[in-house]
Design a protein around this nucleic acid. Structure first.
Lengths: 336, 336
DNA sequence: TTGAAAGCGCTAACAT
DNA sequence: ATGTTAGCGCTTTCAA
């Protein structure tokens, strides 16, 4: 069996060069006669010639694919990013390969290696740990970090302005509720979360609440169980202080934490007391379901995606991009 | 510059065969001396040899990658499926390429072609339209449909038991609420949705409500706007009938529809009247946020993923798989 | 306009 | 236990 393109050439009686020119859409450019183009076009439509990208990549040392590595694709934030990036790739004739690390730095390393082996032309990475010193990084594949900006990383990053968001949100919480908000905070060691804590603390100082002592609760994982654990701790503390009333205001570092916390609150009070003011990083339409006043920080996913994509393309075009961090503003949404 | 593997060979003084045997982990099998393996291993770790998959694919006519094509990755159901499939791929040394079609059959065709061109060894497809007659499908790449089973499709499919789910859900709705449920139903032409309508109608008959006349509302798109539109229509109809009370029971064909409907209900009554019994296909933790009695159908995503993956692997192994439809049971969740 | 041919990096068959 | 080599399908140069 001849190679696909040769097969087409033989069947139509033209040379492989001519066939290639036509199938690659350069027919007009090289003045291939309309009749020839017609013939070849028909044969291809009929018999379905499919270009072999492996061969193409091998020859061109370019795959027209880029990789996206995220901690968790079932997290709506990352799924949304993926959707945005896919659209951008589509518009530029690229294909997006997405892989999940489940927050495991080892898996992340493996995944990145795998993408490099697959010859992606660039990588967008939401890292789940600080960069390793990595000795012999030979193939300088373009790369940009997204969502999380670890100091010491060798490539540019695009992140939300988490500190601004936290500041705005915390201020709004203080303004709306009659008491200082509790902050249930998962994975405080992540740069994005650390920035939120900084914003929170800054506003606490403004409000004469010191460094937010007694208001902050931490957890090592970002999931519902962590949310439940932190909420239990917060309620227990309140109970010790003698109060049995629900907290006036509750902030959560992520939707998962909020979900867990609400489960505990509901179990404790038989319902979700509507007077609790709720603060959330990450917005979601379903927050409308809560009877409460909800303040949510919405990240600008399209902007994050676009900036990361541009940064990557510039590197792919050979430009040397400075190791800078681009910050994308967020906005406060009031629901309920 | 020599080819990567030759470079390693020259630098270490061994032949490419030896190097390849070691790097591909077959060193012991071919009794390469420990010293040799050690030496090569060190050089590789030091200088970072990365296998070129494009060349490998070209040679082997196999990419160790499979494609997943879904209508919308920011839909939690599909994101979840993707996560499950990724884990399965990982465990089998495969890589998963995921692409989104936004429900556009043209984009779907393009995407599938693209995956084929990229040499994926198989495709899992949640189709957004009936299969085209497709004349000259030469390369019989293994394929399985998921979530949606169009009659006339040439390949096996794995779907949830939507009819069973609808039957259970509708019965539970009748049993819980004092009135027959309204059913807001987006994209009724999708096979998965059609099955839900069948189940709904069957129970209506059981309950002496005929074919569910007056209870069903349709929309051509599955999004929040459609949910709002159907909810408006439903409330308007109720108002015409003289009633101003909220409906006793409301079923939605998807979470997006439910979200839109709740927005309208909230706007209309100033809050979400907690006495409405809510039925949902697709479960989500945030349904706990509703003060209402919520009945939700949860699809078994791990089982769907596993079955589709197995079906695909069997085809990839050369087995001829019958054009059958596997049905995965769903279960009813009571929330709130 | 069209043809011929080299070579991208890897694998597997065949030779030692 | 290790070395040699053809060829996967494509792009690109050079020639006609």
């Amino acid at each position: 069996m001849a190679k696909p393109i040769e097969e087409v050439a033989q069947a139509t009686g033209f040379s492989v060069t001519t066939v290639r020119l036509v199938t690659s859409g350069q027919g007009d450019k090289y003045r291939i006669s309309a009749a020839t183009q017609q013939l070849i076009g028909e044969y291809v439509r009929e018999h379905g010639y499919i270009l072999n990208h492996a061969a193409r990549s091998l020859k061109l040392k370019r795959s027209d694919a880029i990789g996206l590595v995220v901690p968790e694709i079932s997290n709506l934030f990352f799924a949304g990013l993926m959707a945005e990036l896919e659209a951008l790739c589509d518009a530029h004739g690229l294909v997006l390969l997405t892989a999940t690390t489940h927050g495991d730095p080892t898996a992340e390393r493996r995944t990145v290696q795998n993408l490099l082996a697959r010859g992606v032309d660039g990588i967008i990475l939401a890292p789940c740990g600080p960069p390793e010193p990595g000795p012999g990084r030979k193939p300088r594949t373009p790369m940009v970090m997204i969502d999380r900006d670890y100091p010491g990383s060798p490539c540019p990053a695009v992140v939300s302005d988490n500190c601004q968001g936290a500041t705005e949100l915390t201020r709004a919480m203080f303004a709306t509720a009659r008491e200082a908000p509790l902050f249930l905070c998962a994975k405080p060691e992540l740069p994005s979360i650390a920035a939120r804590v900084r914003g929170f603390r800054a506003v606490c100082r403004e409000q004469g609440r010191g460094e937010g002592e007694g208001l902050l609760f931490h957890a090592p994982a970002d999931n519902q169980a962590a949310g439940r654990a932190m909420a239990e701790a917060a309620l227990a503390k309140a109970a010790l202080a003698g109060g049995d009333a629900p907290p006036a205001a509750l902030m959560c570092s992520s939707l998962l934490v909020l979900q867990g916390a609400m489960q505990v609150v509901k179990a404790r009070y038989g319902r979700i007391p509507p007077e609790i003011v709720i603060g959330s990083f990450d917005d979601h339409t379903m927050l409308d379901f809560l009877p409460n006043r909800v303040l949510a920080i919405a990240q600008d996913r399209p902007a994050l995606a676009r900036r990361a994509f541009d940064l990557l393309r510039r590197q792919m075009a050979g430009e040397t991009v400075a190791r800078e961090t681009e910050t994308v503003p967020v906005r406060l949404i009031r629901r309920g």
